[in-house]
Nucleic acid binder design. Sequence first.
RNA 1: GGGUGGUUAGCUCAGCCGGUAGAGCAGUUGGCUUUUAACCAAUUGGUCACAGGUUCAAAUCCUGUACCACCCA
Length: 503
Amino acid sequence: MTEPTQTPAALQVDENHIIAERREKLKTWRESGKAYPNDFRRENLAAKLDELYGEKTKEELEATPIQVKVAGRIMLKRVMGKASFITVQDLSGRIQFYVQKDGVGEAVYDDFKKWDLGDIVGGVGSLFKTKTGELTVQCAEIRLLSKCLRPLPEKFHGLTDVEQKYRQRYLDLATNEETRFTFVARSRMIASIRGHMTHHGFLEVETPMMHPIPGGASAKPFTTHHNALDMQLFLRIAPELYLKRLVVGGFEKVFEINRNFRNEGLSPRHNPEFTMMEFYEAYADYQSLMDFTEGLIRHAARESLGTETFDYQGRTLDLSKPFRRMTTVEAIHYHHPGYSLTMLNDAGWLRQKLADLKVEVFPTAGLGTLQMQLFEETTEAELWDPTYIIDYPTEVSPLARRSDKNPDVTERFELFIVGREIANGFSELNDPEDQAARFLEQMKAKDAGDEEAMYYDADYIRALEYGLPPTGGCGIGIDRLVMLLTNAPAIRDVILFPQMRPE
RNA sequence: GGGUGGUUAGCUCAGCCGGUAGAGCAGUUGGCUUUUAACCAAUUGGUCACAGGUUCAAAUCCUGUACCACCCA
């Protein structure tokens, strides 16, 4: 068991003359006997004031003064001798305070002049409009509520260093409006999805994050250890098998929005922990799930952005049109007409083509897998408009129901938008004997060296033996969906504290 | 793993045909009672990522390492 790094060197923090000067100011504040008070109860939010009273004229505000009590962080400060303006920011936005020596008194004003950008203050006063018509709080009282010992990033450019944005998200949020917008939009989007699911009769549940047998996806798990039981546990790679156990139990419409963990590399599209929504509906199949998922995504866009058509990385994305549905072969042929349907159904031709493209192909790969590999190599990244790719090969879909028309493919879809996989769903495999056989195939693959192959989960088979109704299920990558809706190029931009190398 | 670009003051950046470090912001001091990235004057602050090399002399040229970003596998 290794301990977290807590060496003296790791505990040491950087200091400089600016911090030293601010510490001196804090010392003076402490000596006055009222540092870090917590008895200021604000009554107004900065941006709400502008919504409520922004339209009032200078004269109206003078005739019937409006008393307000606002608190927040000083973001800008303009001292002009015996009167000053500061711009204060709270969760809602910004408002300007006007602080005069005559208004707050000489002693407070002299203190105030020493306060720094980043300090948290509370002000009480009445609203007025400046010469330029800006709604402003004329302070009768102003207090320092919390000291900012470290200088904020440059006031105009904000924090631009991408690494620091992720490591010190609090600074990014304090200084960058766009970052605040992104995470507010994320919250709204998840709330809208919850609302949509609940509205359609789904029950929200929480299933284990620590699994004795990792399952529900093909991925490498993180391992951990439970001391009291002295057993190895795995952080979950997917909640799928637990959610389907609930459907066996009679929770016929369930969903879960929660974290999955996959022990893989970091990239613009991968974080080791990420948020998925999975939902399962009895007596649904993959066709009806595609309809539902399409509606859900449109709903999320409308609720968080107010529109279904928006810009993503300089290109228009329109979610309002029906999502296309095609097989891998149809998609390859559509985007690359040079590859004829004859070629794409010829395993020998596919093997040669993939070899030319330097794609690693297992000797056991069947026609469907070869087609899927060529699709991933040539076409996946070109699927800008929402597209469902359907009928994945059975050998790569161990939890999906076989197609009635062709047992080599499953009733499965993946949804691609802007060239990225957003969702994955299928008619669930509810035949316990077929599922047991598929798990055995996975074990063989694992023995042959496929680290991502699934484990045999005997309790899951036992659950299926009690009878899983015909069911459809789908997983949606929440982070990737947020990326679309917030025009974010990287998954790190939509995760508050993305995984980073240690400093 | 490969390629490209980057790392200079607390922050944002300039300097890079070699000659011993600059600006704006923030800080400090002074001035200013309607400012808007306020302004004016003065001023503090740097192991130029790290380690080698070339040179009389390296932030600058060369090599390597670390970290960051982007692209490719």
